[in-house]
Every structure is written in C-alpha cells, then in structure tokens.
Amino acid sequence: MSSLVPRSIFDDFFKDFAPAFYVRPLHGDALPNPSKIKIDVKEDDAAYTVHAEIPGVPKDDIQVSIDGNVVSLRAEVQQKDEKKEGEKVLRSERYYGAVERSFQLPADVDAAQAKAKYDNGVLTLTLPKKQSGATQRLKID
C-alpha cells in the first residue's frame, strides 16, 4: 500500500541523521520492501506480459508461482563477504535475505502455458489467460 502521508524533498536527505544513525549495523540497511521489485504489467487479448526488475540476482535464486490470478515473485539475495588481510570494512550497504512481491491480475492465468525469461536483471513473464469454458445458454422452462 502506498503511504498517504505527503513526503518532503528533504526526507531522503535527512534519513541518515535519524536518532539511531550511530547504532546501525555494520552490514547494511534493511532489506528492500516489496515495492522495490518494480513491475510493469501489459495486457492483450490472449495474455499478460510482466516485466520485473530484479537486478543482481542469479536466475536460479528467483522463484515465480502462479495460483489462479495471483502471481508471486520471490528472490533470494545473498551478500558475499570477502575480507582480505590488512583490510578493514568501514561500512557495507550490501545485504542478504529474500524479497517477495505478489499481485493479482484481472483474470486467471494458464500456469501450464506460462513462460519466464531473465535477462540483464529483468524478469519477463508471459502469462496466457486461462480460456474459460464455452458459454452455454440455458433453456428457460
């Protein structure tokens, strides 16, 4: 959900001067919230096309699940720390963990025909619409 509180242009500038600034963990900020996986959804008569930005994640660490008209994206993000002799880490903003996002489409998806492609940090999903059964006209007695 988006916040209804108006944001000031100074919010991002002063966020590092929060009262807890000096007690933040050495290994980075909190994991990005689900809105950090940015998506574009397009629709035509036969299918939905979803483009999701998931940069820096190997394709083996991305999971897509489809349940009716709900699509869920999950990415495992891992930080690889390498400490060399004589080196001292002053601050690291990289992180590890999982980010997840789900969204609902207007119609059910044919999961058996769905396709996914990951290239240059962008996940492209082609999600065919499930064909509903033929409409049957009832005879009124």
Rank of each mutant, 00 (worst) to 15 (best):
G86P: 01
E93C: 10
K36D: 15
P34N: 14
K38S: 10
M1Q: 12
G97K: 03
D108I: 00
V70L: 07
Q63G: 08
Q136E: 13
E87V: 15
L105Y: 09
G133V: 10
I37T: 03
A47P: 12
K88N: 08
K83R: 14
N120E: 09
R137P: 12
G68F: 07
L127A: 00
V23C: 06
M1L: 14
Q63E: 14
V57I: 02
R74D: 10
V77R: 08
I37S: 06
D108P: 01
R7E: 11
F10T: 08
K139E: 15
Q113L: 02
A114Y: 00
V122E: 03
R74C: 13
K42V: 10
Y118A: 06
D16C: 14
A75R: 04
A75C: 00
I62T: 03
V77P: 09
I54R: 01
A107V: 07
V89R: 11
E76D: 15
R91C: 11
R24V: 14
M1H: 08
Q78G: 11
Q79C: 13
S102W: 05
R91M: 12
E82G: 10
V57Q: 00
G133E: 10
I39Y: 02
S35D: 13
L31K: 03
V57A: 06
P55I: 02
L125W: 07
